[in-house]
Nucleic acid binder design. Structure first.
Lengths: 117, 117
DNA sequence: GCTATCGATTGACATTCGTCAGTTCAATCG
DNA sequence: CGATTGAACTGACGAATGTCAATCGATAGC
């Protein structure tokens, strides 16, 4: 995952022939690209995308025990997906007693959403 | 990547105690989730995200030979990334003579973009 | 024909991913 | 205390990913 966008000036064409108009350099900076790609990567699994959908449309916070029966995966696997979403900053959690409550951090999606539209 | 959103009715809590409010079932259908996740997954690499950014902000089409020097990766690796973007439907290409021109298919990003915002 | 060039393909490699069974940790309730 | 429960962690597995060197196919120009 080496993103070395040093933007070395591209070499000129050999002859005077141009294959296409000069390319426009990317507007997203490397650091932005890494951030947005990590968010997109976290959303790049159908289960995680639906998890975010459930959590986002839910007004408050959702306990893990309510999420497990929604998906046809084991509880450790769901926990693994949640921890990936948390690592990407998309969700966060809070423990109260025995239960863990997850909620979406909407600002984590803003950058990618803005870039996409 | 098994998405078996049959939405089996979740088992009731044992006692009368609720750990949280009843969960809202996901609004995105499994097929939508798979489509959007595959687009997000394709964007889940910084180089591919920047590739899309370059192609998208470019008015017309861009030849591969202009893309290679922008990134610190080999030509086969770039070709591999482009084919992944094409497999996800995000870009398409057209050969003219020796050169291959890539361009973004904006409608491919619409569903994910709409869901995100 | 021969040669050069653009871009895709192949094969290989280390890394990461998604998944589960099993276990552990933490908190609650008898 | 001990038993139970919710949720995270561990280890393992096959599958997929990102990368490159090497090669191949097709086209253009000589």
């Amino acid at each position: 995952m080496s993103v070395d966008m040093e933007l070395t000036p591209k070499r000129k064409r050999a002859a005077g022939e141009r294959c296409c108009q000069p390319v426009v350099y990317p507007d997203v900076q490397p650091a932005e690209a890494v951030r947005m790609a990590s968010v997109a990567k976290a959303l790049g699994d159908p289960i995680r995308l639906q998890l975010v959908d459930v959590l986002r449309r839910h007004a408050g916070e959702v306990c893990v025990c309510e999420l497990v029966p929604l998906f046809d995966i084991s509880q450790p696997t769901l926990s693994h997906h949640l921890s990936k979403l948390r690592a990407a900053g998309i969700v966060d959690s809070q423990r109260r007693g025995l239960w863990a409550y997850y909620y979406v951090r909407p600002e984590a999606l803003e950058e990618l959403s803005a870039w996409l539209s």
